[in-house]
């Protein structure tokens, strides 16, 4: 169990690392297939932050700010929000643990869903008609004040509760 805890911490640490690293390394340069490795500076971000209200599994509202262009997963990581198991695959569309539920009006403003996201959404627990994957949603000014609900977590089939850790 200690290992698991350590790993969680490690993964978390790595996630944080990636959240600032990602823009410089992945998105842009890959697009051409050929990429240049001479620079690695982070693009400047505007100061126009967007407010997001998360509702956690206990029904509590947590209001945070994120930068336009950040994904909702980035926001969760940057703000150190503790939603157990959230974003396990670090936004690479291999899980559906970043599942979030929105109000109808917000849902309509979220932009198109890719096939890959739909495939992973099919595997999300507690899926609704207004569900999306948080790692696929990018903040923009039009989403100011949006509410995103973290769904109930899957019924825990794990039996060993580690009190000592």
């Amino acid at each position: 169990m200690a290992l698991v805890t350590a790993l969680r911490r490690l993964a978390h640490a790595r996630l944080r690392e990636y959240s600032w690293r990602t823009p410089a390394v992945t998105s842009g340069a890959w697009r051409t297939g050929q990429r240049s490795f001479s620079t690695g500076t982070q693009p400047l971000r505007s100061d126009n932050k967007v407010t997001v209200h998360f509702i956690n599994r206990d029904g509590e509202k947590i209001s945070v700010k994120g930068s336009p262009g950040d994904s909702l997963l980035d926001v969760v990581i940057n703000e150190d929000l503790d939603f157990d198991g959230f974003g396990a695959c670090e936004g690479t569309l291999a899980c559906s643990t970043c599942h979030l539920i929105f109000d109808e009006e917000v849902y309509k403003k979220l932009g198109p869903v890719t096939d890959e996201e739909m495939d992973m959404l099919d595997l999300a627990y507690g899926l609704t008609d207004t569900s999306r994957l948080g790692c696929q949603i990018c903040l923009s000014k039009t989403l100011e004040g949006m509410v995103a609900r973290v769904p109930e977590s899957v019924a825990d089939i794990r039996q060993s509760k580690d009190e000592s850790a």
Binding site: L7, W30, E90, L93, A94
Partner: peptide, 21 residues
């Protein structure tokens, strides 16, 4: 396995798992 695996997985998934990448 374990930590070793996670470390490599974290690097590689950032490179070849996202459909757009």
């Amino acid at each position: 396995e374990g930590e070793e695996w996670l470390k490599m997985r974290s690097v590689l998934r950032q490179l070849i798992m996202r459909p757009r990448d």
